Amino acid sequence: MMLYRRASQAGGTYFFTVNINNRKDTLLTDHIDLLRDCVASVKQRHPFRIDAMVVLPDHLHAIWTLPTNDSAYASRWRMIKTSFSRKLPKSEVISQSRQSRGERGVWQRRYWEHLIRNNDDLERHMDYIHFNPVKHGYVGNPSEWPYSSIHRYIQRGWIDNDWAASGEIDTTCFGER
């Protein structure tokens, strides 16, 4: 078994990209209420703050801040993914490797995590999250995508409803890094 080096800072703020296994599927938006319930359940038992989040049909991006003495984001993701998978009807193809481990074939095993280093890094990743539905061609304006924390930011007056469409940000910096 290969061990992966992950950032680990108690109380840290992290950016995540988490993908479903079949990137042509639309499980996350088809079952958005189930995903929300799974996240809320884990969040209630193992608190963390969701600073930003967007859910697309086949992947999601999130920024979480963990409690001061806690760096266990991996266990939270494992619980969310496990709960979501168990509550879905079995329709996916499950590889022999996953079958031997008793796993479903819903999620990719690994995910991307990045420890946010400063306010500029945080702002860049929040912008990336909120612009992502436009990047993938689902909508023309980020505020048109229903599964995004951008609505909370608009409601609180932190950004305008036409953010990104108004040209106030440089969207050319939103390439994959």
Rank of each mutant, 00 (worst) to 15 (best):
H130I: 04
P47A: 00
G157F: 02
K135Y: 00
S8K: 11
F16D: 12
A52G: 06
N141R: 09
R45W: 00
R6Q: 10
W64H: 15
S85D: 01
Y4Q: 11
N141C: 05
Q44A: 05
H125D: 03
R36P: 00
S97V: 10
D37K: 10
E123Q: 13
Q108T: 00
Q155E: 08
T65R: 15
M2L: 08
L27W: 08
N21Q: 04
D70M: 04
R104A: 11
L56I: 04
F15A: 09
R104E: 02
R86P: 10
S83R: 15
W145Y: 00
W163A: 01
V55Q: 15
S91E: 00
S83F: 09
S91Y: 02
H46N: 03
T82F: 07
S100Q: 14
L115I: 09
H114Y: 09
P133N: 06
L56A: 01
A10G: 07
Y147T: 03
L28G: 15
I63D: 14
S143V: 02
A52D: 04
N132V: 01
C173P: 00
S97Q: 12
Y147D: 08
E168M: 14
D120S: 08
L27R: 15
C173N: 01
N132W: 00
L66V: 06
W158F: 03
D25W: 06
S83Q: 13
Q44I: 04
R5W: 07
T65Y: 11
R5G: 14
R78A: 11
E123S: 13
H59Y: 07
D170R: 06
S95Q: 04
N118S: 14
E103H: 09
P142K: 13
P146Q: 09
H151I: 01
V42F: 04
D121V: 15
I63K: 15
K90C: 04
S85N: 05
S71G: 04
R101W: 03
T26H: 15
L34R: 14
R86S: 10
A165P: 15
W145K: 11
Q99W: 00
L88H: 03
K135N: 00
R5F: 11
S41H: 01
G102P: 10
Y73N: 13
E92G: 12
I169M: 02
L3G: 08
Y73H: 13
S75D: 05
L3Q: 07
K81L: 01
W107K: 03
E168G: 14
Q9F: 12
N132K: 07
V18D: 03
P142Y: 06
D170L: 04
P57G: 08
F16M: 14
T172P: 02
E92D: 06
N119H: 13
Y128R: 08
T13E: 09
N19G: 08
L34D: 12
I63S: 15
S91G: 14
L115V: 07
N19P: 03
A165F: 13
G105C: 10
L35W: 12
H151C: 01
T172D: 02
T82M: 07
H61A: 10
T68W: 10
G157E: 01
D160F: 00
A74Y: 02
V39D: 13
R23F: 12
V134K: 12
G137Y: 08
I94E: 05
F131I: 03
G105K: 10
F174V: 00
A52H: 08
S8W: 10
K87I: 05
M79L: 14
Y138K: 04
E144Q: 11
P89A: 13
I150G: 09
L27A: 12
W107R: 02
